[in-house]
């Protein structure tokens, strides 16, 4: 079937089986491999995307559910000449080791900061509770989100 939706700010139209998982569609049809699959069951958060600005799991959505929605993947956070303040904060705080969980972690952080622009460390842990990281021990991730929250934000990260 034909699905029309906004992907990282651009209107896209694609012919796809309606039951194709969104994570597979993004990776295979659009080449957006920043969206990762790990558990395939909603436990790990690696496949997190933003659907109309809200964090959801692309391994538990079917293509038809994209119809008319606005989707942001990790690739959509980059701007022409800059990266998103959260991406910068993750890099600067050593919050990235193997990196597999980071796209999901950052998109979940975008959602968290939209709801709560100045979260405490505890609130960050609760807000990122759906995203597993096996490398960092989370401390530096929490540092990075805290730092990004404290940094005056330009329009695009709101």
């Amino acid at each position: 079937m034909n699905i029309v939706f906004h992907l990282n700010g651009e209107e896209r139209s694609i012919e796809t089986p309606p039951d194709k998982r969104v994570v597979d569609l993004l990776r295979e049809e659009f080449g957006l491999t920043g969206t990762k699959e790990s558990c395939g069951a909603g436990d790990c958060g690696a496949c997190t995307i933003l659907v109309d600005g809200e964090s959801r799991l692309s391994c538990l959505m079917l293509a038809i559910q994209l119809q008319g929605r606005s989707i942001t993947t990790i690739e959509g956070l980059e701007r022409k000449d800059s990266i998103h303040p959260l991406q910068k904060a993750f890099a600067e705080h050593g919050a990235v080791q193997c990196g597999f969980c980071i796209p999901g972690m950052i998109l979940a952080s975008v959602d968290l900061l939209k709801r709560n622009p100045s979260p405490t460390r505890k609130e960050i842990r609760v807000g990122l509770a759906g995203n597993l990281c096996r490398c960092t021990g989370y401390q530096k991730i929490v540092d990075a989100v805290r730092h990004a929250a404290e940094t005056p934000c330009r329009k695009e990260c709101k």
Partner: peptide
């Protein structure tokens, strides 16, 4: 609706269905 349970079982092959109605 959310699919957080059904789509897991479907993907793992624990159930087979030939039609789905998403009520989101």
């Amino acid at each position: 609706a959310g699919g957080t349970d059904l789509l897991v079982r479907l993907h793992r092959g624990l159930i087979t269905v030939d039609g789905l109605i998403c009520i989101e």
